[in-house]
Amino acid sequence: MIFMDFLFAFIIGGLICAIGQVLMDVGKMTPGKTLSIMVVAGSIISGLGWYQPLIDLAGAGATIPITSFGHSLTQGAIAEAQKHGWVGVLTGMFEVTSSGISSAIVFGFIAALLFKSKGKVN
């Protein structure tokens, strides 16, 4: 069912963001701290092998939140560790997850060329 597919993406994605909001509001954390904690959480959950089932269930609902960044880094490291042992832990990390960082760098550079910041009200 395609509708259920999208519904799961919405609910799981929304829930992960809601957890982030709880960290910010109740835990009184800055956005940077919140995101760092969520990345670490994603990495640990991935190490336990529970993140992939979440992606199978929710698709983009699990791959778009920043937790998936921790997951793919961990999976990259684990996959290389399987092949090459100790060395692979270091070398494999960015195998899976390069797209987020590389596109952020490229688009960041383009944006710096194109845009000028202006004080606007919310």
Binding site: F6, A9, G13, G14
Partner: peptide, 16 residues
């Protein structure tokens, strides 16, 4: 939290 849930969910749905 509700606002975060809905907007976050919506962004993920667009991603989907």
């Amino acid at each position: 939290v509700l606002k975060a849930f809905f907007v976050g969910g919506l962004i993920c749905t667009i991603g989907h």
